[in-house]
Protein backbone atom coordinates (compact mmCIF):
# COMPACT_ATOMS: atom_id res chain seq x y z
CA UNK A 1 0.00 0.00 0.00
CA UNK A 2 1.26 3.46 -0.88
CA UNK A 3 1.93 5.35 2.33
CA UNK A 4 4.76 7.81 2.99
CA UNK A 5 6.49 5.72 5.65
CA UNK A 6 7.02 2.91 3.15
CA UNK A 7 8.58 5.16 0.50
CA UNK A 8 12.16 3.93 1.12
CA UNK A 9 11.01 0.45 0.18
CA UNK A 10 9.58 1.60 -3.16
CA UNK A 11 13.06 2.12 -4.57
CA UNK A 12 14.83 -0.76 -2.81
CA UNK A 13 15.79 -4.17 -4.14
CA UNK A 14 13.00 -6.51 -3.17
CA UNK A 15 10.52 -3.68 -3.00
CA UNK A 16 7.00 -3.93 -4.36
CA UNK A 17 6.28 -4.64 -8.04
CA UNK A 18 3.26 -2.34 -8.01
CA UNK A 19 1.41 0.02 -5.67
CA UNK A 20 -2.13 -0.30 -4.42
CA UNK A 21 -3.11 3.32 -3.85
CA UNK A 22 -6.02 4.50 -1.72
CA UNK A 23 -6.98 7.68 -3.62
CA UNK A 24 -9.08 8.83 -0.65
CA UNK A 25 -5.79 9.45 1.18
CA UNK A 26 -4.36 11.51 -1.67
CA UNK A 27 -7.33 13.77 -2.36
CA UNK A 28 -8.99 16.47 -0.31
CA UNK A 29 -12.77 16.61 -0.64
CA UNK A 30 -13.73 20.28 -0.40
CA UNK A 31 -17.43 19.46 -0.47
CA UNK A 32 -20.22 19.27 -3.06
CA UNK A 33 -20.35 23.03 -3.63
CA UNK A 34 -16.61 23.39 -4.31
CA UNK A 35 -15.11 23.59 -7.76
CA UNK A 36 -12.91 21.67 -8.10
CA UNK A 37 -14.34 19.44 -5.40
CA UNK A 38 -11.44 16.96 -5.16
CA UNK A 39 -7.97 18.45 -4.95
CA UNK A 40 -4.56 16.88 -4.68
CA UNK A 41 -2.99 16.64 -1.26
CA UNK A 42 0.29 18.05 -2.44
CA UNK A 43 2.67 16.19 -0.15
CA UNK A 44 0.94 12.87 -0.74
CA UNK A 45 0.90 13.20 -4.52
CA UNK A 46 4.64 13.81 -4.41
CA UNK A 47 5.00 10.25 -3.14
CA UNK A 48 3.47 8.89 -6.35
CA UNK A 49 5.30 11.31 -8.63
CA UNK A 50 8.58 9.97 -7.25
CA UNK A 51 8.00 6.32 -8.22
CA UNK A 52 7.47 4.61 -11.53
CA UNK A 53 5.60 1.54 -10.37
CA UNK A 54 2.33 0.35 -11.89
CA UNK A 55 -0.68 1.27 -9.83
CA UNK A 56 -4.10 -0.01 -8.94
CA UNK A 57 -6.69 2.15 -7.16
CA UNK A 58 -8.33 0.88 -3.98
CA UNK A 59 -11.22 3.08 -2.84
CA UNK A 60 -12.98 3.32 0.50
CA UNK A 61 -16.11 5.35 0.00
CA UNK A 62 -18.12 4.35 -3.07
CA UNK A 63 -20.60 2.85 -0.59
CA UNK A 64 -22.07 0.57 -3.21
CA UNK A 65 -24.30 -1.31 -0.77
CA UNK A 66 -25.93 1.79 0.63
CA UNK A 67 -29.63 2.53 0.39
CA UNK A 68 -28.66 5.87 -1.13
CA UNK A 69 -27.10 6.15 -4.57
CA UNK A 70 -23.32 6.56 -4.81
CA UNK A 71 -22.14 10.15 -4.90
CA UNK A 72 -21.74 10.95 -8.64
CA UNK A 73 -18.86 13.35 -7.90
CA UNK A 74 -17.04 10.55 -6.09
CA UNK A 75 -17.59 8.17 -9.00
CA UNK A 76 -16.21 10.82 -11.34
CA UNK A 77 -13.19 11.22 -9.06
CA UNK A 78 -12.64 7.45 -9.18
CA UNK A 79 -12.62 7.52 -12.99
CA UNK A 80 -10.37 10.57 -13.17
CA UNK A 81 -7.88 9.03 -10.77
CA UNK A 82 -7.78 5.76 -12.70
CA UNK A 83 -7.23 7.62 -15.98
CA UNK A 84 -4.56 9.88 -14.51
CA UNK A 85 -2.44 7.07 -13.11
CA UNK A 86 -3.39 4.50 -15.73
CA UNK A 87 -4.57 2.07 -13.08
CA UNK A 88 -4.87 -1.50 -14.23
CA UNK A 89 -8.06 -1.84 -12.21
CA UNK A 90 -10.12 -0.14 -9.53
CA UNK A 91 -11.64 -1.66 -6.40
CA UNK A 92 -13.87 -0.90 -3.42
CA UNK A 93 -15.60 -2.84 -0.67
CA UNK A 94 -18.81 -4.78 -0.25
CA UNK A 95 -20.08 -2.31 2.32
CA UNK A 96 -22.11 0.80 2.99
CA UNK A 97 -21.01 4.02 4.64
CA UNK A 98 -23.41 6.57 3.21
CA UNK A 99 -26.52 6.86 5.32
CA UNK A 100 -29.78 8.49 4.27
CA UNK A 101 -30.41 11.03 6.97
CA UNK A 102 -32.68 14.03 7.48
CA UNK A 103 -30.93 16.92 5.78
CA UNK A 104 -29.11 14.70 3.26
CA UNK A 105 -26.78 11.76 3.22
CA UNK A 106 -24.05 11.48 5.80
CA UNK A 107 -21.73 8.63 6.72
CA UNK A 108 -21.74 5.92 9.33
CA UNK A 109 -18.26 6.58 10.66
CA UNK A 110 -17.13 3.13 9.55
CA UNK A 111 -17.82 0.73 6.71
CA UNK A 112 -20.66 -1.66 7.52
CA UNK A 113 -21.41 -4.94 5.79
CA UNK A 114 -25.04 -5.45 4.75
CA UNK A 115 -27.03 -8.66 5.02
CA UNK A 116 -26.39 -10.85 1.96
CA UNK A 117 -29.89 -10.33 0.58
CA UNK A 118 -31.26 -10.15 -2.94
CA UNK A 119 -32.42 -6.61 -2.25
CA UNK A 120 -28.77 -5.57 -1.80
CA UNK A 121 -27.73 -7.53 -4.89
CA UNK A 122 -30.39 -5.77 -6.94
CA UNK A 123 -29.13 -2.42 -5.70
CA UNK A 124 -25.48 -3.13 -6.31
CA UNK A 125 -25.58 -4.79 -9.74
CA UNK A 126 -26.71 -1.76 -11.79
CA UNK A 127 -24.45 0.54 -9.77
CA UNK A 128 -21.42 -1.59 -10.59
CA UNK A 129 -22.47 -1.83 -14.22
CA UNK A 130 -22.63 1.98 -14.43
CA UNK A 131 -19.29 2.21 -12.65
CA UNK A 132 -17.69 -0.21 -15.11
CA UNK A 133 -19.02 1.82 -18.02
CA UNK A 134 -17.59 5.02 -16.57
CA UNK A 135 -14.24 3.55 -15.50
CA UNK A 136 -13.61 1.74 -18.81
CA UNK A 137 -11.40 -0.73 -16.93
CA UNK A 138 -11.98 -3.65 -14.55
CA UNK A 139 -13.66 -3.02 -11.23
CA UNK A 140 -13.22 -5.43 -8.31
CA UNK A 141 -15.40 -5.81 -5.24
CA UNK A 142 -13.66 -6.76 -1.99
CA UNK A 143 -15.10 -9.14 0.60
CA UNK A 144 -15.22 -7.19 3.87
CA UNK A 145 -14.32 -8.00 7.45
CA UNK A 146 -17.30 -7.60 9.76
CA UNK A 147 -18.10 -7.84 13.45
CA UNK A 148 -21.81 -8.43 12.96
CA UNK A 149 -23.25 -10.84 10.45
CA UNK A 150 -26.83 -11.69 9.76
CA UNK A 151 -27.36 -15.43 9.93
CA UNK A 152 -30.75 -15.13 8.26
CA UNK A 153 -29.28 -13.61 5.08
CA UNK A 154 -30.97 -14.92 1.95
CA UNK A 155 -27.64 -16.05 0.47
CA UNK A 156 -24.40 -17.17 2.02
CA UNK A 157 -21.45 -14.86 1.39
CA UNK A 158 -19.74 -16.89 -1.39
CA UNK A 159 -23.04 -17.26 -3.24
CA UNK A 160 -23.68 -13.54 -2.87
CA UNK A 161 -20.23 -12.66 -4.22
CA UNK A 162 -20.54 -15.17 -7.07
CA UNK A 163 -23.89 -13.76 -8.16
CA UNK A 164 -22.76 -10.16 -7.76
CA UNK A 165 -19.73 -10.76 -9.99
CA UNK A 166 -21.65 -12.80 -12.57
CA UNK A 167 -24.53 -10.34 -12.90
CA UNK A 168 -22.56 -7.10 -12.76
CA UNK A 169 -19.43 -8.14 -14.64
CA UNK A 170 -17.07 -7.08 -11.87
CA UNK A 171 -14.12 -9.08 -10.58
CA UNK A 172 -13.27 -10.08 -7.04
CA UNK A 173 -10.64 -8.69 -4.74
CA UNK A 174 -10.30 -11.59 -2.33
CA UNK A 175 -9.05 -10.31 1.01
CA UNK A 176 -7.74 -13.39 2.77
CA UNK A 177 -7.19 -11.62 6.07
CA UNK A 178 -10.79 -10.37 6.04
CA UNK A 179 -11.84 -13.96 5.41
CA UNK A 180 -9.62 -15.10 8.30
CA UNK A 181 -11.08 -12.39 10.60
CA UNK A 182 -14.61 -13.53 9.84
CA UNK A 183 -13.75 -17.21 10.13
CA UNK A 184 -12.14 -16.68 13.54
CA UNK A 185 -14.91 -14.46 14.88
CA UNK A 186 -17.81 -16.52 13.54
CA UNK A 187 -16.30 -19.97 13.72
CA UNK A 188 -16.55 -21.17 10.14
CA UNK A 189 -14.08 -22.98 7.89
CA UNK A 190 -12.37 -20.49 5.54
CA UNK A 191 -11.33 -23.30 3.20
CA UNK A 192 -14.97 -24.29 2.80
CA UNK A 193 -15.71 -20.63 2.04
CA UNK A 194 -13.09 -20.73 -0.72
CA UNK A 195 -14.62 -23.95 -1.99
CA UNK A 196 -17.90 -22.15 -2.55
CA UNK A 197 -16.37 -19.17 -4.28
CA UNK A 198 -15.99 -18.78 -8.04
CA UNK A 199 -12.22 -18.28 -7.95
CA UNK A 200 -12.11 -17.48 -11.64
CA UNK A 201 -13.38 -14.01 -10.63
CA UNK A 202 -10.39 -13.29 -8.39
CA UNK A 203 -8.02 -10.72 -9.90
CA UNK A 204 -6.28 -9.48 -6.77
CA UNK A 205 -5.65 -10.98 -3.33
CA UNK A 206 -5.05 -8.98 -0.15
CA UNK A 207 -3.01 -10.31 2.72
CA UNK A 208 -2.57 -8.49 6.04
CA UNK A 209 -2.20 -8.88 9.77
CA UNK A 210 -4.59 -7.89 12.52
CA UNK A 211 -4.90 -7.64 16.26
CA UNK A 212 -7.38 -8.29 19.01
CA UNK A 213 -9.99 -5.62 19.65
CA UNK A 214 -12.59 -5.95 22.40
CA UNK A 215 -12.28 -9.73 22.45
CA UNK A 216 -12.51 -10.34 18.71
CA UNK A 217 -9.92 -10.42 15.91
CA UNK A 218 -9.82 -7.22 13.88
CA UNK A 219 -8.65 -6.19 10.43
CA UNK A 220 -6.16 -3.64 11.76
CA UNK A 221 -3.50 -4.05 9.05
CA UNK A 222 -1.14 -4.35 11.97
CA UNK A 223 1.78 -6.24 10.46
CA UNK A 224 2.71 -9.44 8.63
CA UNK A 225 -0.08 -11.95 8.01
CA UNK A 226 -0.60 -14.71 10.58
CA UNK A 227 0.28 -18.24 9.41
CA UNK A 228 -3.33 -19.24 8.66
CA UNK A 229 -3.52 -16.42 6.09
CA UNK A 230 -0.38 -17.73 4.40
CA UNK A 231 -1.98 -21.15 4.34
CA UNK A 232 -5.07 -19.69 2.67
CA UNK A 233 -2.89 -17.91 0.14
CA UNK A 234 -0.96 -21.07 -0.61
CA UNK A 235 -4.17 -23.02 -1.03
CA UNK A 236 -6.06 -20.65 -3.27
CA UNK A 237 -3.52 -18.64 -5.32
CA UNK A 238 -2.89 -21.56 -7.66
CA UNK A 239 -6.63 -22.06 -8.07
CA UNK A 240 -7.35 -18.50 -9.24
CA UNK A 241 -6.74 -18.60 -13.01
CA UNK A 242 -7.11 -14.84 -13.48
CA UNK A 243 -5.10 -13.74 -10.46
CA UNK A 244 -2.80 -10.85 -11.35
CA UNK A 245 -1.57 -9.48 -8.02
CA UNK A 246 -1.11 -10.14 -4.32
CA UNK A 247 -1.15 -6.99 -2.17
CA UNK A 248 0.26 -6.73 1.35
CA UNK A 249 -1.81 -4.22 3.30
CA UNK A 250 -0.27 -2.60 6.34
CA UNK A 251 -0.99 0.68 8.07
CA UNK A 252 2.10 2.79 8.46
CA UNK A 253 1.30 3.61 12.10
CA UNK A 254 2.39 0.05 12.95
CA UNK A 255 5.75 0.40 11.22
CA UNK A 256 7.79 1.46 14.30
CA UNK A 257 6.60 -1.68 16.07
CA UNK A 258 6.87 -4.05 13.12
CA UNK A 259 9.98 -2.71 11.41
CA UNK A 260 10.81 -2.32 7.74
CA UNK A 261 12.69 -5.64 7.67
CA UNK A 262 9.50 -7.50 8.51
CA UNK A 263 7.67 -5.64 5.75
CA UNK A 264 10.37 -6.56 3.24
CA UNK A 265 10.33 -10.16 4.45
CA UNK A 266 6.57 -10.32 3.92
CA UNK A 267 6.95 -9.08 0.35
CA UNK A 268 9.69 -11.63 -0.24
CA UNK A 269 7.58 -14.48 1.12
CA UNK A 270 4.59 -13.51 -1.00
CA UNK A 271 6.80 -13.15 -4.08
CA UNK A 272 8.32 -16.59 -3.47
CA UNK A 273 4.85 -18.13 -3.66
CA UNK A 274 4.16 -16.60 -7.05
CA UNK A 275 5.99 -19.06 -9.38
CA UNK A 276 4.34 -22.10 -7.86
CA UNK A 277 0.98 -20.38 -7.87
CA UNK A 278 1.42 -19.36 -11.50
CA UNK A 279 2.43 -22.89 -12.45
CA UNK A 280 -0.59 -24.24 -10.62
CA UNK A 281 -2.86 -21.85 -12.49
CA UNK A 282 -1.35 -22.83 -15.82
CA UNK A 283 -1.83 -26.47 -14.94
CA UNK A 284 -5.51 -25.91 -14.30
CA UNK A 285 -6.24 -24.05 -17.51
Amino acid sequence: MAQPAFAPLFHANGGPDFLAVIPDMFLDDAGPSANPRFRDLHRMIGLLDAVELPQVAHHLAASLASAVEPDPDYVEAMANWADRWNCAWVSDHLAFMEIAAPGGASTAGLALTPPFDRQILDLMVPRIQRLLARLRRPFLIENSAYFVRFEDSELDEPAFLNELCARSGCGLLLDLHNLYVNAVNFGFDPFAFLGGLDLSRVVEIHIAGGCELEGVWSDAHAGPPPEPVWALLDACARRCPNLRAVTFEMHESWLPEVGMDAVAATLARARALWPAAAAGRRGRT
Binding site: L110, V148, F150, V216
Partner: peptide
Protein backbone atom coordinates in the same frame (compact mmCIF):
# COMPACT_ATOMS: atom_id res chain seq x y z
CA UNK B 1 -31.58 -6.98 18.12
CA UNK B 2 -29.24 -9.72 16.88
CA UNK B 3 -26.59 -7.09 16.09
CA UNK B 4 -26.85 -5.59 19.56
CA UNK B 5 -26.41 -9.04 21.11
CA UNK B 6 -23.44 -9.94 18.89
CA UNK B 7 -20.10 -10.42 20.68
CA UNK B 8 -18.45 -8.22 18.04
CA UNK B 9 -20.68 -5.22 18.70
CA UNK B 10 -18.26 -3.82 21.29
CA UNK B 11 -15.48 -3.93 18.70
CA UNK B 12 -17.75 -2.25 16.17
CA UNK B 13 -18.49 0.57 18.65
CA UNK B 14 -14.75 0.92 19.36
CA UNK B 15 -13.89 1.03 15.67
CA UNK B 16 -16.47 3.77 15.17
Amino acid sequence: QHAANAPGMAAQCSLY
